[in-house]
Simulated scan of single mutants.
Amino acid sequence: MGEAVTTRKSGTPIKVYCLPEEKALIAANARNAGMSVARFLREVGQGYRVHGIVDYERVRELARINGDLGRLGGLLKLWLTDDRRTAHFGEATIRALLARIESTQDQMGAVMHAIVSHRR
């Protein structure tokens, strides 16, 4: 017969008594790190430095901004390929489009900076 496989479930649990607010804080920290409470406590207890995941709201904001850039880039591409749908675009429209792309890039940079600054 083969060797018995040791799993965490067959190991010995460690009980930790804590107040309700401590438990809530531990759960929130685990959630912010993208981990289960058990994994979070196991890793912290073994001395690992837990790295949190990026705030989901900021990720959604970056995805929205990226979508805006894609749409703006698509318009610019149509204009550059002399697509008949953009024949009425004048220089002022193209300059406004380029300014909007630059502004949107600035928005994305600001969100990324906020994420990095928040994690320090």
Rank of each mutant, 00 (worst) to 15 (best):
E22Y: 08
E22R: 10
K23G: 12
A24R: 01
L25D: 14
A27H: 03
A27D: 07
N29H: 10
N29D: 09
A30V: 04
R31G: 03
R31W: 04
R31K: 09
R31Y: 05
N32P: 04
N32R: 11
N32T: 08
N32V: 06
A33G: 02
A33C: 05
G34N: 03
S36N: 06
V37A: 07
V37I: 08
A38M: 12
R39A: 14
R39T: 12
F40I: 04
F40K: 03
R42S: 12
R42D: 14
R42L: 12
G45Q: 00
Q46K: 14
Q46V: 12
G47Y: 02
G47H: 03
Y48W: 11
Y48G: 06
Y48R: 11
R49V: 14
V50C: 05
V50F: 04
V50L: 04
G52D: 15
G52Y: 13
I53G: 12
D55V: 01
D55A: 03
D55E: 04
Y56F: 14
E57Y: 08
E57F: 05
R58G: 00
V59M: 01
V59A: 01
V59R: 03
V59N: 00
V59L: 03
R60V: 07
R60K: 14
R60H: 10
R60G: 06
R60Q: 11
R60I: 06
E61P: 04
L62G: 00
L62A: 01
A63M: 08
A63I: 09
R64A: 13
R64W: 07
